Simulated assay, not measured.
Amino acid sequence: MTHTTTVAVLVGSLRADSVNRRLALALRDRAPEGVVLDVVDDLGALPFYNEDVDSDALAVPAAALALRERVAAADVVLAVTPEYNGTMPAALNNAIDWLSRPYGAGALVGKRFGVVGTTPTPYGGQWAHADTLRSAGIAGAVPVEDVTVSQPGIDVDPVEDEGVRARLDAALATLVAREDAAA
């Protein structure tokens, strides 16, 4: 019996034609056999995290419950995100906040977590990627640092460039290989 690995992909950008959304979809479309990418690109539907709302199980917003269920059902998590003002986008940070609860038992607890993406700067989003890994780790995820791909989106189209695609595919393969080794 073949094991299928499900990867929840959190898209940090809310723009409809975001390069990072396109990267996530391209990764999904060429995922290796036995790997399914669930692209979670509706993070803008989440209200800002509020523990007062989250403390009443009946008041938790449907969008937050759906996010928690999708990530909990995944084997591993991959964030595909740009960098905004030297850090991760607020929408991604907010999603990690929702996924970090209930404390000690959130949907990220024990999940291997990687981050890739592109930003039109010379550093390609590496500060955002480091912040995302740190935040996810504090939320209980297991950060996989050697999956990180911070691609400058200045000189190449990161979705079409073969070198970038190879690096992204290798990052996904590393994240999934780690999952398979633990199974």
Rank of each mutant, 00 (worst) to 15 (best):
S18A: 07
A166V: 10
A45L: 14
G117K: 08
A171R: 02
S100P: 05
A170I: 12
D75W: 09
V149E: 01
A57S: 15
S100M: 07
G104R: 07
A90T: 13
A181I: 11
V156F: 00
A139F: 07
V71N: 14
V76T: 15
V164E: 00
S18T: 04
D56I: 03
G163N: 00
A183N: 12
N85T: 15
A171G: 05
L25E: 05
A182P: 05
V7F: 08
A130V: 13
L25Y: 03
V71L: 11
E33F: 00
L78P: 09
G163F: 00
Y103Q: 08
A130W: 03
Q126M: 13
A173R: 08
V176M: 06
A130Q: 10
A183K: 12
R68Q: 15
I138N: 13
A66W: 05
V109G: 08
I138K: 11
A182T: 11
V164N: 03
R22K: 09
L65M: 12
D180H: 10
V176A: 03
P102R: 09
T2L: 12
G137H: 07
G44P: 08
E83H: 06
S150C: 07
Q126C: 13
P61I: 04
T119V: 15
A45F: 03
D131K: 05
M88P: 06
V36S: 11
I154A: 05
L14I: 12
V19C: 04
V11H: 01
L92R: 02
L14K: 03
A141R: 04
R30V: 09
P102S: 13
D38P: 00
A63P: 03
E179C: 08
R167C: 06
L58H: 14
I96A: 11
V35F: 00
P61H: 02
D75E: 15
F48I: 10
S135F: 12
V53A: 13
R134M: 14
V115Q: 05
G106P: 01
A171K: 05
T119Y: 13
A74N: 12
Y49E: 05
G44V: 14
V60R: 04
V144C: 14
T119M: 13
A16Y: 00
P82E: 07
D38L: 09
A181K: 15
V9A: 01
G106Q: 06
A64G: 08
M88K: 01
R178T: 02
L92Y: 01
E160H: 00
A16I: 10
V147S: 03
V40Q: 05
G106R: 05
R15I: 08
D41P: 00
D97L: 06
R68I: 02
K111M: 12
G140A: 14
E51L: 09
A139N: 13
L14F: 00
T118V: 12
I154C: 01
A136P: 10
A182S: 12
S55T: 11
S13K: 02
A173V: 14
S13F: 01
L14S: 03
L67G: 07
